[in-house]
Design a protein around this nucleic acid. Sequence first.
DNA 1: AGAATTTCTGAACTTAAAGTCAAAATGTTT
DNA 2: AAACATTTTGACTTTAAGTTCAGAAATTCT
Lengths: 219, 219
Amino acid sequence: MGDIKDNRRDAILRSVANVLRNSRLSSLTIQQIADELGMTKGNLYYYFKDKQDILFHCHMRSTEISLRALSDAETLGRTPPEKLHILLVRHIRGIIDDGFGGILQTDLDKIRPAHRKLYVSKRDELERGVRRLIEDGVKAGEFQCANVKMAGFAILGGINWIPKWYRPNGPFTSAQISEQMAGFYLRGLLVAGHEWRSDDRKLSPTSRQPDLADTETWR
Amino acid sequence: MGDIKDNRRDAILRSVANVLRNSRLSSLTIQQIADELGMTKGNLYYYFKDKQDILFHCHMRSTEISLRALSDAETLGRTPPEKLHILLVRHIRGIIDDGFGGILQTDLDKIRPAHRKLYVSKRDELERGVRRLIEDGVKAGEFQCANVKMAGFAILGGINWIPKWYRPNGPFTSAQISEQMAGFYLRGLLVAGHEWRSDDRKLSPTSRQPDLADTETWR
DNA sequence: AGAATTTCTGAACTTAAAGTCAAAATGTTT
DNA sequence: AAACATTTTGACTTTAAGTTCAGAAATTCT
């Protein structure tokens, strides 16, 4: 039953996520991935062709989650701002909670060209989705922005950076991070006077600031 | 004449920047750095202890530039929004033009602990500077934000990501990128109705969109 | 149970890049 | 020019991590 083998492959990918959560990328080694699962590194090669193959699948996993956020947004949201908010919140939560966020830091250089193309096309799907939502919002008069593509970069880049500073034991939950960051980016686009929320929770200018342990140490 | 030796060290650091501009980080090798300058790699070890030492100095170079942006902002700007705008524009231009932006992607793991501490403390100086400006703006009633620290992350993260997608031959100049991104982030903080510019250039909601070659390929 | 298949091991192999160093080349001082 | 200091070379060593593989262990099939 290839099912069982697939489970094992899954477990391996998740163990990559676990390693990434704790240590840093520079030290993401085949050995660590194996250790995390209590298997030997030789055994990994029974499930994946090589390290780049493993990383490729992590990348795919990561985008799949984000693309689900995109399609969720399209169906659940009604206005462009609402949709974009949903997308960003889910995209961020995915990156933090599913743990594949760390993979975003890796270089795609060494991934087999065919694989890389496949991944890049998926990732571009997300980027285009974001841009489309922004454009729609501009057309609807709800958003304003100097350049759609760059606004997309400004938003997605900030999100991609999250794994650099996020710590599981840190002061923020993924729910808080996603809400606050999405809110911030939305406000960067919204034309003054527009709101995007369906309900009436509005952000008071002086909402309470969680008191943070001042551990300033992302790497 | 330590001066001459210092010049050479400088040249080496700049050659790192050059290599980073073209190839990717995963392939930043001592050999490449040497080639870029037409020297042998053995010779590099006459000027620097080891690779990590080189990378450390690149990191320092990078933060120095950003910290200069911070102090410039403090002296040149009058209100918090003005200051923050100046800081972001110069910070971004520094990252793109001085070419050490790419170094931000590297892991600090392998840098000697004492060096790492030194660098991190400098970098934190920048982060604290950004937060201070945001806080000042909030107190002055010009900014609103749910959480200062996270707003800082949202902004600085997006900026750190720039080297991933910026291409020297791309459709944007560093001046455009810095202006537009800084503007976007500022708007995310500004309380409706506030403007930060001293002059009267305002962003019309439908400002012309530069037509972009759609090369969607950052790595 | 015995055969066939799948899964796993661990030691050996390979590779790529970092780092070393004695000696050569170059430059400087007296 | 001789002595001294600085800089550069290139071949060599080391290191760390990825990869292979013959065979052992476990599992499934008949």
